[in-house]
């Protein structure tokens, strides 16, 4: 059975997505919808990391229950950078790039959840299926948010 490997990979990908959302939030502190929602949606992935670590023990994986975090100083540096530069019109293309990264990473996470859901149903591991059913809808909402934000911002950024 290879479920442990998928959980290991997903644990990594959710951590990565949480970091991506947080970094985008901090880099675009002056873009308030990105700033606030980036933090809110990162929290979803951090919660997923905890849930994955919890159930991964059943599949022979010892994963860290605590989501990855980094020093507050690094975060403040990015926020400060955004406040200094973000009001002068440079970082707009970077915003589209960041949203694209979030979208594609969330797509990858979503695919992992799909795989787990299929396998869990096949072997009737209902505890694992319950985790997927709790977490996967969040991932889809993260994807839709990133996609909507790309739609909302592309025109203005690319034509002006």
């Amino acid at each position: 059975m290879k479920l442990g490997l998928v959980l290991h990979e997903l644990h990594h990908s959710e951590n990565d997505l949480a970091q991506e959302l947080l970094h985008a939030s901090e880099r675009h502190k002056v873009d308030h919808s990105i700033y606030h929602l980036g933090q809110d949606l990162a929290e979803w992935s951090r919660q997923h990391v905890r849930e994955i670590a919890e159930i991964a023990g059943d599949y022979g994986q010892k994963l860290d229950h605590e989501p990855k975090s980094e020093l507050a100083t690094a975060r403040r540096l990015r926020e400060r950078g955004s406040e200094m530069l973000g009001r002068k019109g440079f970082p707009e293309l970077a915003l589209l790039h960041d949203l694209r990264e979030i979208y594609t990473k969330a797509c990858g996470v979503s695919a992992d959840w799909e795989m787990l859901a299929q396998a869990a149903q096949g072997i009737q591991h209902l505890d694992l299926l319950a985790v997927v059913q709790r977490c996967h809808p969040d991932t889809l909402r993260q994807m839709k948010w990133a996609n909507a934000a790309i739609k909302e911002n592309s025109t203005q950024i690319l034509v002006s």
Binding site: V30, H32, G86, K88, G89, Q156, I157, S160
Partner: peptide, 12 residues
């Protein structure tokens, strides 16, 4: 309007 203010802020 809040997004419009952001666009005015970034100069677009």
């Amino acid at each position: 309007v809040m997004q419009m203010m952001r666009y005015a802020e970034d100069g677009s």
